[in-house]
């Protein structure tokens, strides 16, 4: 019992120092405790760890780096909008040219439509035309089941001729 309590007290009083060498058994050794007096001065063959020296950052370099970064940033901030603006202007000009071209085409189409509408209006109120055979070419208003068959036939033939001439005109164009 006594031995156990003494050993326990001894072990409890042991303090494990921070590692000061590459010796992996340094913590578990009883250096200076169990073998006090017979410890060889050069028994620890492992090298001692040298504390790593942390180099202090150079403040001047840091400041100069920051200044250079700011200048680059400023340059990009200044030049990017200008480049964007220039490309936008160029795009707008291109779009404008396209729109002018489209407008020209739409004007032509509008003119054709107007011409068609006006022709239709006049056609609606047009007085019936007489053909050589005596049959009349009827206007849209006069086409009904009461109209003579030969007039309806003449109108149909005239309409077919109109369609044929139109398609011929398209083919030539």
């Amino acid at each position: 019992m006594e031995i156990k309590s003494i050993v326990g007290a001894r072990l409890g009083s042991l303090t494990f120092n921070k590692s000061t060498s590459t010796n992996p058994f340094e913590r578990t050794s009883f250096k200076g405790k169990a073998f006090g007096g017979s410890v060889l001065p050069f028994a620890d063959v492992f090298q001692k760890i040298k504390p790593v020296e942390i180099q202090k950052p150079n403040k001047i370099k840091m400041v100069s780096g920051a200044v250079i970064g700011a200048i680059v940033d400023f340059k990009t901030r200044l030049t990017q909008p200008i480049a964007l603006f220039a490309s936008r202007v160029r795009q707008n000009i291109a779009l404008g040219i396209d729109r002018v071209r489209e407008m020209k085409n739409s004007m032509i189409a509008m003119g054709k439509n107007m011409h068609g509408r006006i022709a239709q209006v006049f056609d609606w109120h047009k007085v019936e035309e007489s053909t050589v055979s005596g049959a009349k070419i009827l206007s849209l208003k006069h086409i009904n089941e009461k109209a003579p068959v030969h007039d309806l036939k003449a109108t149909w033939i005239a309409e077919n001729e109109k369609i044929a001439s139109k398609s011929e005109g398209k083919a030539v164009a």
Binding site: I143, E145, P148, V149, H150, K153, T155, W156, N160
Partner: peptide, 25 residues
């Protein structure tokens, strides 16, 4: 539009000649 109206008119027409016109044209 005109041809459509002519066909409709010939369909309702009592004159038998309308059949000939429909067949021919």
């Amino acid at each position: 539009n005109k041809i459509e109206k002519i066909i409709e008119a010939l369909e309702k027409h009592e004159d038998l000649e309308s059949i000939n016109v429909l067949e021919e044209l």
